[in-house]
Design a binder for these strands. Sequence first.
DNA 1: TTAATATGTCAATATAACTTACCTATTATG
DNA 2: CATAATAGGTAAGTTATATTGACATATTAA
Lengths: 145, 145
Amino acid sequence: MKELLYLKDDQLKDLIEKLFVGYRETFSDSKKILDKYSIGLAHQKVIHLLSMYEGISISKLLKKLKVTKQSLNRVLKDLIKLEIIVFKKDDLDTRIKHVYLNEKGKKIFEEIFLLQKKRIYNALLDSSSEEVINFDKVLKKIING
Amino acid sequence: MKELLYLKDDQLKDLIEKLFVGYRETFSDSKKILDKYSIGLAHQKVIHLLSMYEGISISKLLKKLKVTKQSLNRVLKDLIKLEIIVFKKDDLDTRIKHVYLNEKGKKIFEEIFLLQKKRIYNALLDSSSEEVINFDKVLKKIING
DNA sequence: TTAATATGTCAATATAACTTACCTATTATG
DNA sequence: CATAATAGGTAAGTTATATTGACATATTAA
């Protein structure tokens, strides 16, 4: 945008609203499945991260989620009750706990993800690869800003 | 993306995580100002919409926020106590209430927005106008999907 | 030996939302 | 005109998610 003299507030406001709506819709499409297993948005996010980062440690989960460990622990306890996660101590540093989805957990994730990804999938399918690359680029810049 | 054979789940997962992080960071940058006025994220969202859609009706606010009116009313009552919003009945249909930020409200919004927009502003400034246009395009498709 | 790290837990509180139910005005429609 | 639909409000209770602060244990690093 260097070639533009200035960015108008209206455009920024509009993008901020869209970021909110895009997030909200993307994370509500799978609500029916979450209800089926009596879990919520917080659980969905943890399951999502566990599927992306298999064996992630508790502290790394906390950093990604930006919540307190008390908050994360509530969610993890629910997932243990649901019998969908397992822990494994680190071989070298036994303080560290690695968290994994077990087979049941992976199946539940797929159920959730099947609904959740549709929205993104269709949007990308309807876009050129350049548009997708640029979308990703700008989103990255927003995150790292 | 029609030219690609398929979209990989890993890419979709990554985008979903980024959408979450982008939203969260964008709506947490202004936390200090919100604390100053003892309000929260819900209030910020309402103030944001009021600044975008001056005189928006209650029902349209509800549709944009996708919350119940009980939930919205709690927020509006806080904003009334803060003395930053005013209502005006519709001239033709007096059932309809239009909501506005008053001068104090507009100033508080600007305080919030000044912090909040930095992240987006810098990201866009660091991007080409084409990248920005494509970002907006794909985000729109995600929303309307 | 001591400090730092990784994790867990108790208790209390806050925020934002929900459900269910019922209410008043006002406007639209048969 | 009678009735239905719409716009908005409210009360009570509940749930989901998160917080703060304090404290505890085990392990590793300095």
